[in-house]
């Protein structure tokens, strides 16, 4: 899999928030096989020599693991906020990758697709590699590609909901419409079977956080997701049979004894 000229073996991208401890986060990343992890920016407390607390420990941990870091603009509700945050992230994390979130609705954390397209255009023109968090809307996808996005990240379901793929039909249409653009399901997955379903639809990768971090055993769940993704991808490459409405006997009828 290739995202913005970076070749990756893993199709799992992992969020780094909400883990019980940095040690469990590190073990979960290892168990998942993820090569890309997401990160964010938050206010520094300052004073006493600038104690970074958990954030500082987290960042040194991620750096030491040699991972690709995908900073996000989580919590941004306007184009200006998102663009400024992206610039701050580029300097702080030393990468032009940005997971672009422009949130439009607080209850569902649904992206504001109008602001998203506008921010994507500004950032792509400024040399960013934009990973847009979007709905599965085909027209929005076209606008994002026209703006310069070379990866699309439709949601599966609202962030943190664990509901899986709410609209498989729309996601299948998106895949069919953009056969050559890497597509990543971002958000809403709760179970490895959801990730497997995304892979079976032909999606290139999934990005998840809460499903692993909030599991009773995040390390085992990380491994389970990796296995689900591997199984789903193998199934996609194996060209699944067509579903049908009526039964079709798998055992040959010819040669059956007449015993009635």
């Amino acid at each position: 899999m290739k995202l913005y000229d970076v070749t990756l073996k893993s199709r799992l991208m992992l969020g780094t928030a909400q883990y019980p401890s940095p040690a469990i986060l590190a073990r979960a990343i290892e168990a998942s096989g993820a090569e890309i992890v997401t990160a964010s920016l938050r206010r520094e407390s300052g004073g006493s020599g600038g104690s970074g607390g958990a954030g500082e420990g987290f960042w040194s941990l991620v750096r030491d693991m040699g991972l690709w870091v995908l900073p996000n603009t989580a919590g941004c509700h306007t184009v200006k906020e998102a663009v400024t945050t992206a610039h701050m992230a580029r300097e702080l994390f030393g990468t032009n990758w940005i997971k672009l979130e422009v949130i439009g609705e607080s209850d569902t954390l649904q992206p504001d697709v109008f602001g998203l397209v506008e921010a994507a255009r500004i950032l792509c023109d400024d040399g960013f590699a934009v990973f847009p968090y979007m709905t599965e809307d085909l027209v929005v996808a076209e606008r994002l590609v026209a703006a310069g996005c070379r990866v699309l990240m439709p949601w599966g379901a609202p962030i943190g909901s664990g509901r899986g793929l709410n609209n498989p039909f729309g996601l299948r249409a998106l895949r069919a419409h953009f056969p050559d653009i890497p597509l990543v399901i971002d958000a809403g997955l709760g179970l490895p079977s959801h990730a497997a379903q995304a892979m079976e639809l032909g999606y290139d990768a999934v990005l998840l956080n809460t499903a692993v971090a909030r599991a009773g055993d995040p390390v085992r769940m990380a491994r389970a997701f990796a296995q689900g993704i591997e199984a789903g991808r193998a199934a996609f490459e194996a060209d699944p049979m067509e579903a049908r409405d009526m039964a079709s006997p798998s055992t040959p009828v010819v040669g059956k004894a007449f015993l009635a």
Partner: peptide
Amino acid sequence: EVLRPMQGG
């Protein structure tokens, strides 16, 4: 605003 790296999803 003074921001630092933080965990995120």
